[in-house]
């Protein structure tokens, strides 16, 4: 990836780009240029073309008949299956509107960029991508389609999102249970700050319904580091609660509780075979997407 490309994936740079489409395009191009060309071209038996053998190609794909005809080694390539259905589930609750510094994206902005980029990539490889946005309930949804116009529809929906309302993961899970009958890939973009104690069980339930679930757990650096010292009045972003505390007095306790919770989330996801990706919103997007995509391709191979 070029230096300019890398810089473009910096959330601080992306935050300065006005439209989501622009951000998605920039991210998608950056991510694509950063991905290695995969030696795997799908597991379908539908033949696509021949390619002259080069060291590193798998010997099992050598077309021995062609060798008999042309006395040269050719490798057979196949078309990728295009029947993957992906549900992109975005949390638009009030807490997702948080950003710890002016030059960062809000968690919702970061999630939208991630989600849009993935939609773009999915449709580009002819997979079907759908969208579900939830806070207290599912506020908008797009059924998965593999048409290029689907990307536009998804981006339009994401662009119009405003953070607000409480987080109810249950609403999203109920929606998917009803709408996603076939086995799908479910990618959840949320900070998981749901006061419902069943939240983790609900997320892992999706896996039990044989969906491939990935949780993108979005957290702002200020949530992770708690950089407050002075007396501060902390206001809830989803309801009317508030608490006054001196930052340096509660920092230690806060970080302990947070650490414990994050570990709990990670463990629960691991145990339920849910792919868990913790995302800091100051993290370059390629650092999130490239490993994820590479992992997916390996799984698919």
């Amino acid at each position: 990836m070029t230096e300019a490309g890398k810089r473009l994936l910096d959330p601080r740079v992306l935050a300065r780009l006005a439209g989501l489409r622009l951000r998605v395009r920039a991210t998608a191009e950056g991510v694509l240029s950063g991905l290695h060309r995969s030696p795997h071209h799908g597991q379908s038996v539908e033949f696509s073309e021949h390619k002259e053998y080069a060291p590193g190609d798998e010997l099992r794909h050598v077309d021995w008949k062609a060798y008999g005809k042309f006395d040269k080694y050719y490798v057979k390539r196949f078309e990728q299956e295009t029947n993957l259905r992906a549900w992109l589930v975005v949390d638009s609750s009030g807490s997702m509107g948080y950003r710890g510094a002016e030059d960062r994206l809000t968690k919702l902005g970061y999630a939208s960029t991630l989600c849009g980029t993935l939609a773009h990539l999915l449709v580009r490889q002819q997979d079907a991508a759908g969208l579900a946005v939830f806070s207290g309930k599912v506020t908008s949804a797009l059924t998965p389609r593999a048409e290029p116009s689907q990307v536009n529809a998804i981006l339009e929906t994401l662009e119009a999102l405003q953070p607000g309302g409480e987080t109810h993961v249950e609403a999203a899970v109920a929606f998917l249970a009803e709408r996603a009958r076939r086995r799908s890939a479910v990618m959840v973009f949320s900070d998981l700050l749901d006061r419902d104690e069943r939240m983790l069980r609900l997320v892992t339930d999706l896996r039990r319904r044989r969906h491939e679930v990935t949780v993108f757990h979005l957290l702002d650096p200020s949530e992770l580091d708690f950089p407050f010292d002075d007396p501060t009045l902390f206001l809830s972003m989803e309801d009317a609660r508030s608490v006054e505390a001196r930052g340096r007095d509660v920092r230690k306790g806060y970080l302990e509780l947070l650490g414990k919770w994050l570990e709990q989330v990670r463990t629960a996801c691991g145990e339920a075979d849910v792919d868990y990706v913790r995302v800091r919103t100051d993290q370059p997007l390629d650092e999130v997407l490239v490993p994820f995509l590479a992992r997916r391709e390996r799984t698919a191979a």
Binding site: S95, L193, R195, D220, E223, L233, L235, S236, E238, L258
Partner: peptide, 18 residues
Amino acid sequence: RRPKAVPFPAIDFVMQAR
């Protein structure tokens, strides 16, 4: 000192720590 008001998502942890 008058405390500075700051909206914060993980307020549950702050309340519990306090």
